[in-house]
């Protein structure tokens, strides 16, 4: 099944109809998640109403790291198989990852002002997330530099794998350092968020995931056409 998807015509055919359905499903889930989070979820005892920024901040922050790891997976596949599909997917993930990182930083800053009294501090979590944005932008620039696409793919693959060091650093920064950013609310060992608050957040996470998947597939199929058939 996965081997068949590495075939450019099959991937193109699948991505051409799948992206529309993913976008529709994602938009619906996101709308429902936001309604649940903004109107149905109870007020937080400590933070008051402003905690509701988590319904967009948390999905964006998770997507920024998740998309990077998926791009690393395609970088490894591209390194081994040199297939066009893995190369375009790797490249297509970068702009969406960069947008999600920028969104996580902006929504975090907006939430930080009423909560911490400042838009920005050089806290380990925020600084490592800012570093992730620079890594994304650097990789996007690298992908445009080389005139030979195969050479550019290899350079971006190496860059992605080196930059992957930053992902556990972002995730574990709240454990390693005494940060202003709060610690884990959701982890492998359990969920410390009230179920009524968590429901909307999970819906928004799924909505973000579907919209991002749709965007990446749409971009990848267009990059594939340009690379193989133009």
């Amino acid at each position: 099944m996965l081997g068949q998807l590495a075939s450019p015509p099959r991937f193109h055919a699948l991505a051409s109809w799948l992206w529309v359905w993913l976008l529709a499903a994602g938009a619906l889930l996101l709308a429902f998640g936001l309604y649940t989070g903004l109107y149905l979820a109870p007020v937080d005892v400590q933070q008051g109403e402003v905690y509701r920024a988590i319904y967009v901040h948390v999905p964006a922050a998770w997507m920024s790291m998740f998309l990077y790891l998926v791009a690393c997976g395609y970088a490894m596949l591209n390194w081994v198989y040199r297939s066009d599909v893995s190369a375009v997917l790797m490249r297509a993930l970068l702009p969406t990852g960069a947008w999600m990182t920028a969104l996580a930083l902006v929504t975090g800053a907006l939430w930080g002002k009423p909560t911490w009294g400042t838009y920005w501090v050089w806290d380990a979590r925020m600084t490592s997330e800012l570093l992730l944005l620079f890594i994304y932008l650097g990789l996007m620039a690298l992908s445009q530099l080389a005139t030979d696409p195969a050479k550019a793919d290899r350079i971006v693959s190496i860059g992605l794998l080196i930059g992957a060091v930053n992902i556990p650093l972002i995730y574990l920064s709240v454990v390693f350092w005494n940060t202003l950013h709060q610690g884990y609310s959701v982890s492998m060992s359990g969920n410390r968020i009230h179920p009524e608050i968590a429901t909307g957040m999970w819906l928004c996470v799924l909505g973000f995931w579907l919209v991002c998947a749709s965007t990446v597939l749409n971009r990848a199929r267009r990059l594939l056409v340009q690379r193989r058939w133009a």
């Binding site: 702009p95 749409n218 056409v225």
Partner: peptide, 27 residues
């Protein structure tokens, strides 16, 4: 603050989707 975050998110998701649509030609 909440609405600013929501509007930013919708704008970013929409803009990324539009830019993806202009990344190259279809067949």
């Amino acid at each position: 603050t909440i609405w600013l975050c929501v509007v930013c998110s919708v704008l970013v998701l929409g803009l990324d989707s539009v830019l993806a649509h202009r990344a190259g030609p279809t067949k």
